[in-house]
Computed example of a mutant assay.
Amino acid sequence: MRIGVPKEIKKNEYRVALTPRGVEQFVRSGHDVFIEKNAGKGSGYFDEAYKEAGAIITDAADVYEKAEMIYKVKEILPPEYAYMKENLIIFTYLHSNGNQEMTDVLLNSKVVAISYEDIEDEDGMFPLLKPMSELAGKGGFIAALNFSQSIHSGNGLMLTRVHGVKTPTVAIIGAGRSGLGAAELASAMGNRVVILDIDMDKLEEAKFKLPLNVELLHSSRSNLVETLKEADVMINCILWNKNAKGHLIYRNDLKLMKPGSLIVDVSCDEKGAIETSRPTSHEKPVYEEEGIQHYVVDNIPAAFSRTATQSLCNITLPYALKIANNGVKKALSENEYFRKGLCFYKGKLTLKETAMKFSLEYTDPKDALGIISEDLK
Rank of each mutant, 00 (worst) to 15 (best):
134 E>A: 08
266 V>H: 06
140 G>V: 03
87 N>S: 15
286 V>H: 02
136 A>R: 07
359 S>F: 14
34 F>C: 05
353 E>M: 09
178 S>G: 13
190 G>R: 01
54 G>N: 02
129 L>C: 08
212 L>F: 13
38 N>M: 12
244 A>T: 13
225 V>W: 02
168 P>K: 07
43 S>R: 03
292 I>M: 07
201 D>E: 15
51 K>T: 14
99 N>H: 06
279 P>Q: 09
352 K>S: 12
52 E>A: 11
316 T>K: 03
370 G>S: 03
364 D>Y: 09
339 R>D: 06
361 E>V: 14
198 I>A: 09
56 I>P: 00
73 V>Q: 00
67 A>E: 02
196 L>Q: 09
164 G>I: 02
147 F>I: 08
274 I>F: 10
316 T>P: 03
4 G>C: 09
254 L>S: 02
259 P>S: 15
270 E>D: 12
270 E>L: 05
279 P>T: 09
52 E>L: 12
223 N>H: 11
175 A>T: 04
75 E>V: 06
183 A>F: 04
175 A>C: 05
137 G>A: 00
79 P>E: 08
293 Q>T: 12
61 A>M: 10
262 L>G: 01
276 T>S: 13
133 S>D: 08
78 P>E: 05
58 T>A: 01
211 P>A: 00
351 L>Y: 09
152 H>K: 13
107 L>A: 03
90 I>L: 08
51 K>H: 07
101 E>C: 06
194 V>L: 09
129 L>P: 00
173 I>K: 01
46 F>W: 11
101 E>Q: 14
300 I>G: 04
30 G>F: 08
71 Y>C: 05
30 G>P: 01
125 M>G: 15
127 P>K: 12
182 A>M: 10
226 E>R: 14
328 V>S: 04
43 S>K: 03
174 G>A: 06
35 I>F: 02
26 F>G: 05
290 E>V: 12
1 M>T: 09
284 K>S: 11
165 V>T: 13
3 I>A: 04
88 L>A: 04
310 Q>W: 11
33 V>I: 06
289 E>P: 02
328 V>L: 08
66 K>M: 09
301 P>I: 00
143 A>V: 04
162 V>T: 15
48 E>P: 02
300 I>Q: 06
255 K>Y: 14
332 L>Q: 07
174 G>W: 00
101 E>S: 14
358 F>V: 02
84 M>A: 09
256 L>N: 06
177 R>M: 14
284 K>D: 11
181 G>Y: 00
343 C>Q: 10
253 D>V: 00
340 K>D: 14
165 V>M: 12
151 I>C: 14
122 E>W: 11
110 K>V: 10
180 L>S: 10
285 P>F: 00
72 K>L: 00
249 I>Y: 00
188 A>I: 05
242 K>S: 13
98 G>P: 05
21 R>E: 15
66 K>S: 07
